[in-house]
């Protein structure tokens, strides 16, 4: 796909001008204005107040927890994405469509439901709740629950990047490597992985952004204990509900910054792929 698309033209004449203005105006309203609000509110009491948010121990704990959750969820989902793509894209077997549908299912799940299901399993009145309580393991209102909720919300993101690409690439290169004497691990490491590395990175970026920003699922399973089970998005909510708007928007700025950096990296990557 070359970037100057078919029929691309410079803006000339009244109709394209109007269309362009409406489109850009809409984007400014729907996406630009909220983003600007975040920055404006965060800096409304000056840079000092903005920075003070990040010296709060609760904020630091929230950042640490967010990083920890992403550090567990993203590699697991990446491993899953690679395994799923390897088996689905390179082999023919029955039940493949069903498996693909299942992998896509979390995309139609409300984040709140993605949290709810773990409560149903591991909550105080969940299937395994009493047993876990007996064993002294806390899942819900603790870090494991937050990790599980995050994983469920983000599970398809990397797999969906890899499966279509690996299916399109086919298995010929891998077969060629095998006839040239390469072993299974060598084939994966030297042929398959380099061929999908950009898509993998792309998926990891998206998955990471979603994992660090997840709110609904985490909100249900976290228990909102400050300094312990609050991720950064939950911390934003807590500060906002406490009417600490500068603090809430300062923390939100950090998350928005993550989103913008992710988008920038994604755009650069997409150009590299082409």
């Amino acid at each position: 796909m070359s970037s100057p698309s078919v029929g691309a033209r410079r803006v000339a004449g009244p109709v394209p001008g109007i269309l362009l203005a409406v489109a850009l105006g809409w984007l400014a309203l729907v996406i630009g204005a909220p983003l600007a609000t975040v920055l404006a509110q965060a800096l409304s009491k000056g840079v000092g107040a903005f920075l003070a948010t990040f010296s709060e121990p609760d904020a630091l704990a929230a950042i640490r927890l967010t990083l920890l959750v992403a550090a567990i969820a993203v590699p697991l989902n990446a491993a899953f994405g690679l395994a799923a793509a390897w088996s689905i894209a390179k082999f023919e077997f029955r039940g493949k469509t069903l498996l693909l549908t299942l992998i896509d299912l979390p995309l139609s799940l409300s984040p709140v439901v993605a949290g709810l299901v773990w409560v149903l399993l591991f909550g105080a009145r969940g299937w395994f709740g009493p047993w876990l309580e007996g064993a002294g393991i806390k899942v819900i209102f603790a870090v494991p629950g937050i990790v599980l909720g995050t994983i469920l919300v983000t599970v398809p993101l990397i797999a969906r990047e890899l499966i279509p690409l690996m299916a399109e690439q086919g298995a010929d290169e891998e077969l060629a490597a095998i006839t040239l004497g390469a072993g299974g691990w060598t084939v994966f490491r030297r042929v398959t992985l380099p061929n999908v590395r950009w898509a993998l990175l792309h998926g990891v970026l998206l998955c990471n952004a979603r994992a660090m920003g997840e709110f609904g699922a985490v909100s249900v399973v976290s228990g909102h204990i400050r300094g312990l089970t609050e991720t950064l998005p939950l911390h934003v909510e807590a500060l906002y509900n406490d009417y600490d708007f500068v603090g809430a928007f300062a923390a939100a700025t950090l998350l928005a910054g993550l989103a913008v950096v992710t988008l920038a990296a994604k755009t650069v990557l997409e150009r590299a792929i082409r």
């Binding site: 975040v38 939950l234 939100a252 994604k266």
Partner: peptide
Amino acid sequence: DALVDLPFALPTAVAGIA
């Protein structure tokens, strides 16, 4: 073009309070 994806990447709580 890149900004169109912002709602994908922006944490929902951030969008919510904004």
